[in-house]
Design a protein around this nucleic acid. Structure first.
Lengths: 115, 115
DNA sequence: TTATTAGGTTTCCGTATGGTAACTAAAGGT
DNA sequence: ACCTTTAGTTACCATACGGAAACCTAATAA
């Protein structure tokens, strides 16, 4: 795949700067993409897999669990059979959208330049 | 340290989405921080080391070389003795500032929330 | 002639992390 | 009884990546 954000242990960097703070949340392969997909509204696990075909179930699960733990996404299990699971952005998750937006905008510019 | 953006090989993702495109540029530990530091004006290698104390010379060099190759920073060797090197953002580098800005803003919000 | 400075480079090494693929649970359909 | 579906989990593996520390070069100063 393409890119991830690695999160090493950091015993000696207790109170990081805002930049690193936020990058920690954005950390992990496909994390920004997941947030971006959810910014359009709630999505099911299988839908996210279709949205981001390169992501493996393992990694997608990992990312969603991380984001849930950080309070960025909500996980909602619906009592269907088999149960379906819907993920959505929390308020905190929505706060991230402008940042992702800005990144996407630069991405467009990059593609123009490289195009 | 705290976080990096990993960039794995990706033979099967030729034309990535704008988001991934931009994240590739932001890839690597401390990359956003370096860009952020340079957004205040040109900085020398040793100054960047002071700005970001946790970064090792090896990694800082690697990041700067990558950013240079991607056209994000300029490298300017001054004929002093010993020669000093000044890094600055290119036009493309400046395009990234709004994105970093947005990330920093979220970072502040995160720190408030986390108290 | 020895030390110092700036800006690196190189080596070695550990591990965090992603990929792949096989396996699972529970319910409903046929 | 068996298959399918959803949403994962688990095991195994390879490696990209960062950390630490030693080393390098040329010019100047002491």
């Amino acid at each position: 795949m393409v890119l991830s954000i690695r999160k090493n242990k950091s015993p000696e960097v207790p109170n990081s700067c805002p930049l690193s703070e936020c990058m920690t949340v954005l950390g992990g392969v496909w994390t920004p993409n997941v947030i971006w997909c959810l910014s359009g509204g709630p999505r099911r696990f299988s839908e996210l897999q279709i949205d981001i075909p390169q992501v493996s179930a393992k990694v997608l699960t990992t990312r969603l669990r991380e984001l849930e733990k950080k309070g960025v996404v909500d996980r909602n299990v619906k009592p269907t059979s088999p149960p379906s699971v819907e993920y959505s952005l929390t308020e905190l998750g929505n706060d991230l959208i402008p940042a992702i937006d800005a990144i996407v905008r630069v991405g467009h510019k990059l593609k123009e330049n490289a195009g």
